[in-house]
Design a protein around this nucleic acid. Sequence first.
DNA 1: GGCTGGTATCAGCACCGGGTGATGTGACAG
DNA 2: CTGTCACATCACCCGGTGCTGATACCAGCC
Lengths: 102, 102
Amino acid sequence: MMTSVDTDLIRVLADPLRLRIVTLLARETLCTTHLVEETGARQTNLSNHLRVLREAGVVETEPCGRYTYYKLRPDVIAQLAGQFADLAEQARTAADNKRACP
Amino acid sequence: MMTSVDTDLIRVLADPLRLRIVTLLARETLCTTHLVEETGARQTNLSNHLRVLREAGVVETEPCGRYTYYKLRPDVIAQLAGQFADLAEQARTAADNKRACP
DNA sequence: GGCTGGTATCAGCACCGGGTGATGTGACAG
DNA sequence: CTGTCACATCACCCGGTGCTGATACCAGCC
């Protein structure tokens, strides 16, 4: 079992605004305008964060006329959840392992 | 269902060295000296990161003479895993929700 | 007691990354 | 074709944060 958590993916999600975006996109597919309304952030700011999320593979884009819809990819989040679950399970199993003092 | 992921906890885990520490502590309980050997980082640096992990409740300390053992708290990681799993599940359920263009 | 080794804290620095404004592009409406 | 709107990109500033060296603290050993 690998149990190595993807650092880059966590760093992408570690930003409050990006996590907010992800949480919103978990409920429904939205375009940038909606996200501006929901978050109150500037369009430029959101566009930058959305690019980070896109390049990390967390979201998918779907152009619709002059709008761009953003949709969360559940499998990416599920994979991350699995990595953390594995880590927790491993920690539970090895709870009593203690390396001796040098 | 809440499904709100704890941003502060993720930010704590978003650092490569801290995640490395957590991964190592998932296998066995270690003291700072061991972590210095394993990671190659300076003692000061590690001590700073360990403080962050401690204050975030991710690890517990157990003094043993002049050594300090660090132990991962599996429940914290498991809780995070659950939050992400919920988020993924929610995204799967609401996969076809799409708000109309304004 | 003094000394040594393990650990924590402090102050400083350098760098990364998030926020913003200006600007570019592309698509619809008129 | 021209204006407008949605969105992306670029250049820049600035604050947070990780890394480091110096130092303090504390426990065991001589």
